[in-house]
């Protein structure tokens, strides 16, 4: 991927993040996700109905990588079934950890394909995924 294109996509999602708004609707599950070693702090809100992710919103203050990664993750996960969502997350984590992954599944998420080169920023890219996994677990528990 061209470095300029990569930078433009990340900056666009950072400066104009999608789905960044507060939610008071009680049907949404909420989870906070933050990095111990830094100051990123994001609240995720997700609406799941019939095992399909209907909507996700987020709030909080975080760095360019975390914010853009959250915006891109949300864009890609809305409309997915829980199974598809877990698959997407697994591929994203694999990419960040330098394992095999499917570019087609990740779509714009591949802008972080070289993030492994900056060890201290890997956690930034993974931050929203940490929160999303927490939410999926929360949903499973509630369903039981």
């Amino acid at each position: 991927m061209d470095e300029n294109v990569r930078r433009e996509i990340i900056l666009d999602h950072y400066q104009n993040p999608k789905n960044k708004e507060s939610i008071t609707d009680e049907r949404y599950l909420k989870a906070n996700t933050n990095n111990e070693s830094c100051i990123d702090n994001i609240d995720l809100y997700v609406l799941i109905e019939n095992d399909v992710i209907q909507d996700i919103k987020f709030q909080g203050e975080a760095c360019a990588i975390s914010t853009s990664s959250t915006s891109i993750m949300i864009t890609n996960l809305i409309g997915k079934t829980l199974v598809e969502a877990r698959e997407y997350i697994a591929h994203f984590e694999a990419m960040v950890n330098e394992l095999a992954y499917d570019e087609a599944i990740l779509k714009e998420g591949i802008v972080y394909s070289t993030i492994y080169k900056q060890n201290n920023r890997k956690t930034c890219a993974l931050l929203p995924y940490k929160g999303m996994l927490k939410l999926l677990k929360q949903y499973d528990t509630l369903k039981k």
């Binding site: 400066q15 830094c38 100051i39 990123d40 203050e61 975080a62 760095c63 360019a64 914010t67 920023r121």
Partner: peptide
Amino acid sequence: NGIFSQDVAY
């Protein structure tokens, strides 16, 4: 202005 402090530190 408009840039998260940690990004500037990086």
